[in-house]
Nucleic acid binder design. Structure first.
Length: 295
DNA sequence: TTCCAGGGGTAGA
DNA sequence: TCTACCCATGGA
C-alpha cells in the first residue's frame, strides 16, 4: 500500500534526513544520500509494519508493508507528517537567513526541518543517550534497546521497532545496564519509561502543545537525565528554537568562528546567536551544519 | 594506564 | 546561582 503526502514548500527529503544524526539511529535506516528513509513501526492496532519513504515532487510517498486498514494508514500518515515536519512553514526563518551568508544555503537546500522520531518519548530517550558519550556509543546503545526490547517485523525478525514505554517500563535497571550497556543512564531511561507508561508524564501532547516555550522547557528539565543541552535539543525537535543546545561542539564552533580558537563558555555561545531571536536555535543548527560540511 | 567523549545529578557553599 | 565531584562505558 502506498500513501502520498504533500509538504509545504520548499521541501527536500534528504535535507530532512541529513539534518542531524538521527538517520543513523535504529530503527531508522536509509541510504547514504538520505533519499530513502525506512523504519519498522508498531501501530496502535499492534500490527507490525515496515514503512519506506521516498521523495516525490512536492512531498513524499510512503510504502507500507502488508495490507493495512484505513485507520492504520491514517496513523502512518500522521506519524510521517510529524517525523518529517511536512506541514512546517519556515518562510519567516528563510526571510531572516537571507541576510546571513553563512546561512545562504538553507532556503535553496530547503533546510530547516529536523528529522524526528514518531514519538517524543523516543526522541527523549535518544537524546539522553547522546549525553557524555561518543556518537558511536549512542548508536550502540540505541541499537541495543531496539534489538533486545523492540518488537520484530514478522517477515524479517532481524528488524525491530523502537520499544514502547510499556516495554521498557517492565524491565529493571540491571537489564538496561547489562544488556543494553546504558551505564548510569539506565535509571534515567527506566524512570522516564515508567512515568510515561503509567500516564504520569504525557510527552506526546508536546507535539501539538500551545503552552509557552518556557513552560515546555521547564517540563523537559524536570525529567531526570535531561539537562540544559538535552532540553534545548528537544525543543528544536519540537519546533521551538529559543534555546541553543550548548555542548562541546557548539563551543568549538563559536570558538572557531568568533574567538580565534580561544576556549569559550556557555555565555559566549548564547551571545553569538542571540540576535536571531526566536530563530536562534535553528540558526545555530544549520550554521553548525554548514560548519561541519566544510563551509 | 590514563583520558575523555556532541552532560547531568547532587551536595554544599 | 555556582562549583566540585561523581557517574558507566568503550575507544584512543
Amino acid at each position: 500500500m502506498t500513501l502520498t503526502l504533500p509538504a509545504l514548500p520548499p521541501f527536500s527529503l534528504s535535507s530532512v534526513t541529513r539534518s542531524h544524526g538521527w538517520l543513523r539511529l535504529a530503527p531508522f535506516a536509509g541510504d547514504e544520500e538520505g533519499t530513502r528513509l525506512s523504519r519498522v513501526e508498531r501501530l496502535n492496532s499492534g500490527r507490525m509494519v515496515e514503512i519506506e519513504i521516498l521523495e516525490m515532487n512536492g512531498g513524499v510517498t510512503v510504502d507500507i508493508s502488508g495490507n493495512p486498514s484505513q485507520t492504520e494508514l491514517d496513523e502512518v500518515a500522521e506519524k510521517v507528517t510529524w517525523m518529517l515536519g511536512l506541514n512546517q512553514d519556515l518562510s519567516a526563518f528563510y526571510a531572516v537567513a537571507r541576510s546571513e551568508p553563512k546561512l545562504a544555503q538553507v532556503e535553496d537546500l530547503a533546510q530547516g526541518r529536523v528529522l524526528r522520531s514518531p514519538t517524543v518519548f523516543e526522541d527523549v530517550v535518544k537524546t539522553i543517550l547522546t549525553t557524555n558519550t561518543s556518537w558511536a556509543g549512542t548508536i550502540r546503545m540505541v541499537e541495543a534497546l531496539v534489538s533486545q526490547f523492540g518488537d520484530p517485523l514478522p517477515q524479517d525478525p532481524s528488524r525491530r521497532s523502537f520499544p514502547t514505554p510499556r516495554q521498557l517500563a517492565q524491565l529493571d535497571v540491571q537489564a538496561l545496564r547489562s544488556v543494553a550497556r546504558l551505564g548510569y543512564r539506565a535509571p534515567y531511561v527506566l524512570e522516564l519509561a515508567r512515568s510515561v507508561a503509567s500516564g504520569d508524564l504525557d510527552l506526546e501532547s508536546l507535539q501539538t502543545s500551545g503552552d509557552p516555550t518556557e513552560q515546555v522547557h521547564g517540563g523537559l528539565l524536570s525529567i531526570k537525565g535531561v539537562g540544559a543541552y538535552s532540553a534545548a535539543n528537544l525543543l528544536i525537535l519540537l519546533g521551538r528554537y529559543d534555546h541553543i543546545p550548548v555542548d562541546s561542539w557548539a563551543r568549538k564552533l563559536v570558538s572557531h568562528e568568533w574567538h580565534a580558537g580561544e576556549p569559550v563558555g556557555d555565555a559566549e555561545v548564547e551571545a553569538a546567536f542571540d540576535h536571531w531571536g526566536k530563530w536562534k536555535g535553528l540558526a545555530y543548527w544549520f550554521w553548525d551544519w554548514s560548519y561541519q560540511a566544510g563551509g
